[in-house]
Computed example of a mutant assay.
Amino acid sequence: MTTNYMSNYSYGPDCFKEIPEVLDKYKVHKVVFIGGEKALKSSQEDVKNVLESNGFYVTGSFVYGKNATQSNIDKLVEKSEVQDADIIFGFGGGRALDTVKMVAKALDKTIFTFPTICSNCSAGTAIAVLYKDDGSFDKYGYPDVPAHVFINTSVIAKAPKEYFWAGVGDGISKAPEVEHAVAAAVERGVELPHTAVLGAAIAASSKDAFYKYGEQGIKDVENGTVSKAIEEVALDIVVSTGYASNLVNQDDFYYNSCHAHAFYNATTAIKKEKEPLHGQVVSFGVMVLHAYFNELEELKKVAAFNKKLGLPVTLEEIGLKVSDAEKITELAMQTNEYKQTPFDKEKYIEAIKLADKMGSENA
Rank of each mutant, 00 (worst) to 15 (best):
T2A: 09
M6K: 11
S7C: 01
F16R: 01
K27G: 01
H29T: 10
K38A: 09
L40I: 03
S43N: 00
S43T: 02
E45K: 15
V47F: 12
V50G: 06
S53E: 12
N54G: 03
N54Q: 10
Y57V: 14
T59Y: 05
V63Q: 13
K66G: 15
K66L: 03
K66H: 13
K79N: 12
S80L: 14
E81D: 12
G92E: 13
G92L: 11
D98L: 08
V103P: 10
A106K: 15
D108T: 04
T110I: 15
T113N: 14
T116S: 00
T125Q: 06
D133E: 06
D133R: 04
S136H: 05
F137P: 04
F137E: 09
F137Q: 03
Y140G: 05
Y140V: 01
I151N: 05
V155A: 00
K158N: 11
V168P: 10
V168S: 04
P176G: 03
A184S: 14
V186E: 15
R188Q: 14
L192D: 15
L192M: 15
A200T: 06
A201S: 09
I202N: 14
I202K: 02
A203G: 07
Y211D: 04
G214D: 01
E215L: 07
G217I: 05
K219H: 00
K219D: 08
T225W: 02
V226G: 02
V226E: 08
S227M: 02
K228I: 08
V233I: 13
D252A: 08
D252G: 06
F263N: 02
Y264L: 09
A269M: 09
L277M: 07
H278S: 05
G279L: 10
L289H: 07
L289C: 10
Y292E: 03
E297Y: 07
G310E: 13
L315F: 03
E317W: 12
L320Q: 13
L320A: 09
V322C: 14
A325K: 06
I328D: 06
E330K: 14
E330L: 06
L331H: 11
Y338H: 04
Y348H: 06
I349M: 03
N362K: 07
